[in-house]
């Protein structure tokens, strides 16, 4: 469920990135890299898990599924926090700079 949640986040971010490219100031590309990187790593983890428990992998207990979804959503939120911090530090639109420094006329 964590893998699925992250893959969906990666797909949605990639669609948004493509729609707003090439003149996007929002650095959506960062989110794409984060979510795709995590998705690939969890895919590797899932392959090992599947090799261990076989078809049982696809029939998790409802409580486990809910916990994994909770983790998946938390991971997506954590990825967004990383992106937000990078966006505010890079400040491509100069909004933070404008808020912090007033122009002297």
């Amino acid at each position: 469920m964590t893998l699925l949640t992250t893959v969906f986040a990666a797909i949605i971010c990639t669609i948004i990135w493509y729609k707003t490219a090439p003149k996007s100031d929002m650095e959506i590309g960062i989110l794409c890299w984060i979510y795709w990187g995590a998705s690939l790593m969890w895919l590797a983890d899932a392959i090992f898990e599947y090799a261990k428990i076989q078809a049982e992998y696809f029939t998790p207990a409802p409580a486990d599924m809910l916990n994994d979804l909770y983790l998946g959503l938390s991971v997506v939120a954590f990825g967004m926090i990383i992106w937000l911090v990078i966006l505010l530090v890079k400040d491509p639109k100069g909004v933070v700079k404008a808020a912090l420094f007033k122009k002297k006329n």
Binding site: A38, L71, F78, I82
Partner: peptide
């Protein structure tokens, strides 16, 4: 780099 660092950050969180 971005794929690796991004993935590692989320996996560390997990």
């Amino acid at each position: 780099n971005k794929l690796l660092w991004g993935g590692c950050a989320l996996l560390a969180f997990e």
